[in-house]
Design a protein around this nucleic acid. Sequence first.
DNA 1: TGTAAACCTTATAGTAGCTATAAGGTCAAG
DNA 2: CTTGACCTTATAGCTACTATAAGGTTTACA
Lengths: 140, 140
Amino acid sequence: MNIGAIARVSGLTTEAIRYYEGIGLLPAAKRGANGYRVYSGVDIARLIFLRQARKVGFTIDQCRQLRNLYENPRRKSATVHALVANKLVEVEQHIHELENMRRVLSELISACSNDEQAGCAIIDSLAGSAASDHLGKAKT
Amino acid sequence: MNIGAIARVSGLTTEAIRYYEGIGLLPAAKRGANGYRVYSGVDIARLIFLRQARKVGFTIDQCRQLRNLYENPRRKSATVHALVANKLVEVEQHIHELENMRRVLSELISACSNDEQAGCAIIDSLAGSAASDHLGKAKT
DNA sequence: TGTAAACCTTATAGTAGCTATAAGGTCAAG
DNA sequence: CTTGACCTTATAGCTACTATAAGGTTTACA
């Protein structure tokens, strides 16, 4: 099985697979007589594992930790649990940030007259209000 | 007003300000006799505008568009409205992706026994289930 | 048999939006 | 007069790839 074939079954791109190998997230693949990378079933499992982990938001470094657990028969499920629980917190924080952005954008949109005029509440709001957010809530 | 001072009042870092100038998001600052950048009130407004825009999720490129509108007295508020409305859609898509991640992570967490055992539902799930997500929902 | 498409290889540069570092010049206080 | 806080530029680094260049290989088909 060449890299293109395993890319198709794993859902990763060939470039990503080579990249993962280059950074040591994957072991160096065996090579055929022509120098091509050769993969087998166990590699498919590894790649799918990685793709799944990336898809739910784990960073490359976190994937490295997950891979170590995946390949360690002496692991404790509690260790894995903690890793995933931390990730959940991170994702939730990220969601909160985006929800704040969404709220502000919605407010901007409803304040805007959305017409041919130059006067624009969005521009005014971005330019002035909340100018000192980063200061100690001076709210003059 | 030197770069450090305007960084404090605008909430940006000095590095970010120099970076914005370097990529043309900000006009080149005037210089004092010593070569230091010198800023005044109008610059404060520009920097705060940028910081606000970045904070609600606009990319550098979108900030460039917003800046053009900000500085164009002939703008139409409808143009600004459209830009912000597009951004809102982008942010909402991003939220949906993260909510999917959150759902999957929660499911993984509740499936895990969270103890001293090596057997782990999280590892099993990442390794196997949904292996063919990227294929045509083959769901064997 | 020839050739063209579809693979594969490596190395390098680019993406976004900065942050960090190095190596230096300037300025204000004590 | 020196210490520390500021400023300058240029360059490298970060994440997680993607894109490109410049080539070698394999396969299918006429």
